[in-house]
């Protein structure tokens, strides 16, 4: 009951923790950008007229949504080389896995946003003589994107936290560096408290932005 906190030892690890934070942020940005592209492609495939495309994207989305991320990470790192002979380094395997995993959630958000737009909107655009592609670009997407932004941001916040799992592949992210520091110093309590605090401090401003976006959207409808 009389644990004496000692943050001084941990202070010596500040640069390591900072570099871990940088890796985490960089990784998050990468998997958000790639994930949005994957999600957009899968969503458009879901809405396409081709049954084959629809089925393929459905299979992709459900497979990644329903498998635990940790299992996917281990599979892409350890199992993929056995199946295909392609050996990914830990960072690449992490980016690929998180991109596809996040993309499956983004796809559902994007698809949902598009189908939530009243069909009368497309009809009005078509009636003017616009092609379906132009209707999508000029009429449907601008309205749908507004509705997608808050859930996409929420999903991205989850992605930020998801990146902590890559530490199992020894990618030097914030949690991995925290583990190193904890092991060196035997100060698990201090180190992990600080690691948790860093995640919160980075995400706090983002959640405020999401709340604002949600409020603005509610008002504009």
């Amino acid at each position: 009951m009389s644990y004496t906190w000692n943050f001084d030892i941990v202070w010596g690890y500040r640069w390591i923790l900072l570099s871990g934070t940088a890796v985490t942020i960089g990784l998050t940005i990468a998997v958000i950008v790639f994930g949005l592209v994957a999600g957009l492609v899968a969503a458009i495939a879901q809405l396409s007229r081709s049954p084959v495309l629809r089925w393929m994207s459905w299979a992709y989305i459900e497979m990644f949504r329903l498998t635990p991320l940790l299992v996917l990470l281990l599979w892409f790192y350890y199992a993929l080389p056995i199946v295909t002979g392609i050996k990914l380094d830990a960072l690449t395997a992490s980016i690929v896995t998180l991109t596809l995993y996040g993309g499956s959630f983004y796809a559902e958000i994007i698809r949902g946003g598009i189908v939530s737009i009243d069909s009368g909107q497309s009809e009005a655009g078509m009636a003017l003589g616009m092609t379906p592609a132009r209707v999508m670009r000029r009429i449907v997407l601008p309205q749908a994107i507004k509705r997608m932004i808050p859930p996409l941001m929420n999903q991205s916040i989850i992605q930020f936290k998801n990146t902590s799992l890559v530490s199992v592949l020894a990618v030097p992210d914030l949690l991995y560096q925290g583990q190193v520091a904890a092991m060196d110093t035997y100060r698990a309590l201090e180190v992990y408290t600080i690691v948790a605090a860093i995640y919160v401090v980075v995400l706090l401003p983002l959640t405020v932005v999401v709340k604002r976006a949600e409020k603005r959207l509610a008002q504009s409808n």
């Binding site: 009243d118 009368g120 009809e123 009005a124 309205q143």
Partner: peptide, 11 residues
């Protein structure tokens, strides 16, 4: 074409 529910573009 003019629709019953207008279908103006709200954006």
């Amino acid at each position: 074409m003019v629709f019953q529910h207008f279908n103006l573009f709200p954006h």
